[in-house]
Design a protein around this nucleic acid. Structure first.
Length: 125
DNA sequence: ATAATGACATGTT
DNA sequence: TAACATGCCATTA
């Protein structure tokens, strides 16, 4: 497994129940601000060994579930998983992301192996 | 080694 | 407000 992938998975595991994060956020947390696409790519290729990864807490920056087309029921599965955790998902699969947005803590970020410089950069933003 | 792909993001139209 | 275009970068073929 590439270090990038394991970092991403680690970051996603840090997302608390009942909150959501955007792909870009995760990318930020692993030190590559513009790797949002890779995040999604990794989630798409998750196997059973990564079932402990809360992939459903990761959505796009517009607060929408962007997996329609993969399998017809995937978005609905994600919807129910989120609602089960107390996250309201509108019928059109759109979420009030600003309300549930996960804000990483310094401690959490350091755990991912980011240097202090980068950490403060994120918090600043 | 080069080219194509994609669960995205952001700036223009 | 929404559709369109361009940038990005790890993985695959």
């Amino acid at each position: 497994m590439s270090p990038f992938k394991s970092n991403v998975l680690a970051a996603i595991k840090l997302i608390p129940k009942g909150t959501v994060a955007s792909y870009g956020q995760i990318a930020l947390m692993v030190g590559v601000p513009q790797a949002a696409r890779q995040i999604g790519w990794i989630l798409h290729s998750l196997g059973e060994s990564e079932v402990n990864v809360p992939w459903w807490r990761v959505i796009n920056n517009a607060g929408r579930i962007s997996i329609k087309g993969l399998s017809p029921d995937a978005p609905l599965l994600q919807k129910s998983l989120l609602e089960k955790e107390g996250v309201a998902v509108k019928p059109n699969l759109n979420i009030d992301i600003e309300h549930y947005r996960y804000k990483p803590s310094i401690k959490a970020l350091k755990k991912l192996g980011l240097d202090d410089e980068y950490v403060s950069k994120i918090l600043e933003k």
